[in-house]
Design a protein around this nucleic acid. Structure first.
Length: 600
RNA sequence: GCCCCUGUAGCUCAAUGGACAGAGCACCGGACUUCUAAUCCGGUGGUUACAGGUUCGAAUCCUGUCGGGGGCGCCA
C-alpha cells in the first residue's frame, strides 16, 4: 500500500550507499517494523552490505558495521516525502510514516474498494482446486468437513489473490464399497428408505457399515457363519461383475442410490457455502483411463507384465535414481481393470487439455502423499509442463480421543450432528447474553456463529497436523475462535449503526492513539496476507490474521471512544476507521468461508 | 530397510532466514450507570527434543541422533 514511497526510499538508499562506496545489496526488501506504537517499514540492507564487506576481506564486526552504515546513510539522505522520520536501530534502517498520511490513505482505500479491498490483480494463471470429494454411499463426517472447508477457503483465497479459479470435486462413486452398500440394500432393505435428504443419505451409509460387518470374517467363526459369509461374498462379487458388464437393473440401482448420496452432499455443500464448478465422477474416467495405459506402454514409460503381473511404471528407474523414493507405481491391474492411479492420470490429462489449467491443487488427506508424488512424476515423464505446478495439499486426519474414526465400528462424528449441536449451543448463549435479540433473528445468528465456530476450528490448525476432535474445543466460542472475530464485526457494526451515517471524508491530523495506529497498520497488511496465504496455499495465515485483527479491534473498542470522541473531527475520523475495520473483518471472514453477522 | 510429515509454555497451537519466540486454554487478580462483558487489562509460565554445520543473523536451512505419526507394485 506504500509501494511508491518504498521504491523511492530504496533508490535514495542505493544512491547513498554508492556515494559512501559501500556494496549495494541485490535487493532491498522492506518489512513492517515490530510495532511499538508507531508504524513504519524497516530494511536489513545494512546487514547485507556489511556482510558483503566482510566477505570481500575487510575485517569488520558485521553487527556493529551494519549499524554504522545505517547511521552513515542517515546522515547522507534528506527527508523523504510522507515519512515522518528515519532511524537507525540496531543495524536496521527504519522509516516511519506520518500517521495522518497513512491513516488517511489506508482508510480511504478500504472504504473506496469495499469488498474488493485486498483483491489482487488478475495474474493470468488458471488454477483448479480439487476438494469436497467424499465417496458416495458413505457418511459425510467431520473429516470430510475439514477437507471441504480447507479447499473452499483456499479457492476463495487464490481467486481473490488473482488466479482464475475452477472448483472441482471428484467423488468416488464406484468401487467395492459402493457395491457392498447396493448389495445390502437390495437384499435386506429394498424400498425401505426414509424420507428426507439427510435421513436417507445417512440411512444408506448405515447400511454400508452393516454390510461391511456382515462380510468381514469374525475372529471366532462357526462353520455355519463362514458358509453364510461366503455366500454373501459371492453375491457381492456377482453384483460387481454385473455392474461392470452394464447390467441395466444393477446400473439403475446404482444410479438411484448414488443420487441419494449426491443429494445429501449437495445440501451439505450449500450449508458450507461451496459451489463446485466441475464434477468429475470416478465412474466416468474409467474408460479413458484404460486408453492412457496403452499410450504409456507405447511411449515406453510403463511396462506391461500381463498376464502374470500388472502394468507398472518404475519411476525411480526412469528418473535415474539409485535410492528408492518414488518407487514403482501400479497403473493397471493384471485383469485389466483400473486403479485409483489410472484414473488420476486420466483426470490430470483432462484438467490440462480440456480445462487448460496452469496449476492444479489436490486437497486430499496426507495418507495419499506417495500416490500423488507418483502421479505427478508420471505426468512429468509423460511430458506435461504443468506437472511441476501440481500440488498435493495434504492435511492431517480428524481423529477421536479414542482413536481413528471408523464407520464400521460406528464411532464417527457426522458433520450434520456437529452442525446441529453448534447451533443449539449458540442459541443457549444468545438466550443468556442477548435476550433482546428478536426471535426471528436468533436462528440465523445461530447458523452463522455455530457454523463459523466449526469452520474456524478446522482452519486455525496447520493443515499437516492431525486434529483430535473434541466437542468443546470444536464448538468453543471464547478465545481464538470465529465468534470472537464475528463479535468484533458486530461491535463495529453496532457503532456505525448508532452513528447513522458515515462521513464521506475525515482528517486524521490529531494525536492518534496507539490502538488506532495499530488497527490501521493491521488493516493495511491485509492485501499482503492474501497474497502470502494464496502463494503458500495456507488458509491458516488468513485464520491467524483474522484473530489478530479482531483482537486489535476489541482493544481499540475498549480504549478509543468513537461516538463520544472529544471533537467532531475525531468522531468523524474514528467512524471512518471503524468502518474500515468492519470492512477488513468482513473480507477476512469471507475468505475463510465464514459469514460476518451484523448482530449476535 | 526406504520415503514423507512432525517435536516450540502445564495443555492445544502460531511465528515470508530477521529485531525481545507469540496466542488461546487453564490458573490467579482486576474492569460493566459509559459505542454489545461472546469483551478488555494485569500476573504466572521457554536451554524452540539433542549434537554439530551454513549464515551478519536459525524455531526456521543442511547433516546426524533420539522420540511421535503416516506411507511403501495389483485398496482408495
Amino acid at each position: 500500500m506504500f509501494d511508491p514511497e518504498l521504491s523511492l526510499a530504496t533508490q535514495i538508499i542505493e544512491r547513498a550507499l554508492e556515494r559512501l562506496k559501500i556494496p549495494i545489496p541485490d535487493r532491498i526488501e522492506w518489512m513492517p517494523t515490530p510495532f511499538k506504537g508507531q508504524w513504519g517499514f524497516g530494511t536489513n540492507a545494512c546487514f547485507q552490505a556489511a556482510a558483503a564487506e566482510a566477505r570481500a576481506g575487510k575485517e569488520v564486526n558485521v553487527q556493529a558495521r551494519a549499524h554504522e552504515i545505517a547511521e552513515a546513510i542517515l546522515d547522507e539522505i534528506s527527508p523523504v516525502e510522507n515519512f515522518a522520520r528515519i532511524e537507525a536501530e540496531r543495524g536496521y534502517l527504519n522509516l516511519y510514516i506520518d500517521p495522518a498520511v497513512y491513516t488517511r490513505r489506508v482508510v480511504n482505500t478500504v472504504l473506496e474498494q469495499g469488498e474488493n479491498f485486498g483483491r489482487g490483480a488478475p495474474n493470468g494463471e488458471r488454477m483448479m482446486v480439487e476438494y469436497a470429494q467424499p465417496n458416495t454411499h458413505h457418511s459425510f463426517h467431520i473429516g470430510h468437513a475439514r477437507n471441504t472447508v480447507l479447499g473452499e477457503s483456499l479457492s476463495r483465497l487464490v481467486e481473490f489473490a488473482g488466479f482464475e479459479t475452477i472448483r472441482a470435486s471428484y467423488p468416488g462413486d464406484i468401487g467395492l464399497g459402493v457395491i457392498t452398500c447396493m448389495w445390502a440394500y437390495q437384499k435386506f432393505y429394498r424400498e425401505q428408505e426414509p424420507e428426507g435428504i439427510h435421513q436417507r443419505g445417512q440411512w444408506l451409509a448405515n447400511i454400508y457399515s452393516e454390510a461391511t460387518a456382515l462380510l468381514t470374517p469374525k475372529e471366532s467363526e462357526t462353520e455355519e457363519e463362514k458358509a453364510q459369509r461366503e455366500a454373501y461374498e459371492a453375491e457381492r462379487r456377482e453384483m460387481y461383475q454385473m455392474w461392470d458388464a452394464g447390467d441395466s437393473q444393477v446400473r439403475d440401482l446404482w444410479r438411484m442410490t448414488r443420487q441419494w448420496s449426491l443429494n445429501e452432499l449437495d445440501e451439505i455443500l450449500k450449508i458450507l457455502g461451496v459451489k463446485i464448478d466441475v464434477f468429475f465422477f470416478e465412474s466416468e474416467v474409467d474408460e479413458p483411463a484404460k486408453a492412457i495405459v496403452d499410450e504409456l506402454i507405447n511411449l515406453g514409460i510403463a511396462e506391461d507384465e500381463r498376464p502374470e503381473g500388472p502394468v507398472i511404471v518404475k519411476i525411480d528407474e526412469k528418473l535415474g535414481l539409485s535410492k528408492e523414493k518414488y518407487r514403482t507405481s501400479v497403473i493397471l491391474r493384471s485383469d485389466g481393470t483400473t486403479l485409483y492411479s489410472t484414473k488420476d492420470l486420466a483426470l490430470a490429462k483432462r484438467k490440462f487439455e480440456k480445462y487448460n489449467v496452469d496449476r492444479s491443487v489436490y486437497v486430499v488427506d496426507v495418507r495419499q502423499s506417495l500416490h500423488f508424488q507418483q502421479v505427478f512424476k508420471i505426468l512429468e515423464l509423460w511430458g506435461f509442463p504443468q506437472a511441476s505446478k501440481c500440488y498435493h495439499l495434504a492435511y492431517g486426519f480428524v481423529t477421536l480421543p479414542e482413536g481413528t474414526m471408523s464407520a464400521r465400528r460406528g464411532n464417527i462424528i457426522l458433520f450434520m450432528d456437529v452442525y446441529a449441536e453448534a447451533q443449539k449451543r449458540v442459541l443457549d448463549i444468545i438466550a443468556k447474553k442477548n435476550p433482546d435479540l428478536p426471535e426471528e433473528q436468533r436462528k440465523e445468528v445461530a447458523r452463522q456463529v455455530g457454523l463459523g465456530a466449526l469452520i474456524y476450528s478446522l482452519l486455525s490448525v496447520d493443515n499437516n497436523k492431525d486434529i483430535v476432535f473434541d466437542w468443546d474445543s470444536a464448538l468453543s466460542f471464547d478465545g481464538k475462535t470465529a465468534p470472537y472475530i464475528q463479535n468484533a464485526h458486530v461491535r463495529a457494526n453496532s457503532i456505525l449503526r448508532k452513528a447513522g451515517s458515515l462521513p464521506s471524508e475525515a482528517s486524521f491530523e490529531y494525536e492518534l492513539m496507539p490502538m488506532e495506529v495499530q488497527l490501521i497498520e493491521l488493516i493495511s497488511r491485509f492485501p499482503a496476507i492474501v497474497q502470502q496465504a494464496a502463494m503458500d496455499y495456507k488458509p491458516l495465515h488468513m485464520a491467524n490474521y483474522a484473530h489478530q485483527l479482531a483482537k486489535t479491534f476489541h482493544g481499540f473498542y475498549h480504549t478509543v471512544r468513537v461516538l463520544q470522541a472529544e471533537s467532531k473531527q475525531m468522531k468523524d475520523a474514528r467512524l471512518r476507521i471503524t468502518a474500515a475495520a468492519r470492512q477488513a473483518l468482513a473480507n477476512t471472514l469471507r475468505l475463510l468461508g465464514i459469514e460476518a453477522p451484523r448482530v449476535m
